[in-house]
Amino acid sequence: MKDIQVIESTQTTTRQKISAKNVKVSYGETIAIKDVSVEIAPNTVTAFIGPSGCGKSTFLRCLNRMNDTIDICSVTGDIRLDGENIYDRNVDPVQLRAKVGMVFQKPNPFPKSIFDNVAYGPKIHGLARNKSEMADIVENALRKAALWNEVKDRLENAGTGLSGGQQQRLCIARAIATSPEVLLMDEPCSALDPIATAQIEELIDDLRQNYCVVIVTHSMQQAARVSQKTAFFHLGSLVEYGDTDQIFTAPVDPRTESYITGRIG
């Protein structure tokens, strides 16, 4: 049974990684997302842009069902990962989140050591058979997140003792340590200096080889630099979605144009 599913899913990866149809999200009475449909391709970086409060984070959190933790939040519509409905009754969100990792808007390291922060995911998923394997996983993740050189001598120090930017990279390392298939990043660079930002962008580009990356960003330049696809949200709806080049050079919708040229937002 499992094998069949695996075959099915490898077949479907050739199509879209994530496809969302008619997604509506509301927080109690307030509607945050109205009727959004998006297809996210594998091995691409997709950027979500849009003015503050337009629902980018909300939509991103639908993709790994983090919205389940908010009581008043209700999601309708159909979101499929490799063709499987992630809101199906049989889907365990825990299993889903192991496949779809997330980096949050605000850095939120565990109040534990740097090592334990990164090792936590692999540990609960049983990804390392022994200590040295775990050390390898941690080193790898920290290297990819461009943090290794800064922390390699103090892995036992508290993760919360790092600077804001370092904490954010630690959270990125923590997310990639579990080798998810999809990585959702909510403004991962908002607390970083230009050098670290460049490193993270490089990382995102690398990750594209193996993963599907969705990134929320407020920086047009960043979206243009790292993404292949861009989605523009405005007041809870998806206004325009297409190739990044096209969105930035020849936007179809006038709202997109005003936003990327700096007139709304």
Partner: peptide, 14 residues
């Protein structure tokens, strides 16, 4: 802080 819970759930903890 709720962000700690999010962090744990985000890496796939139950």
């Amino acid at each position: 802080p709720p962000s700690i819970r999010d962090a744990a759930l985000g890496v796939g903890a139950s």
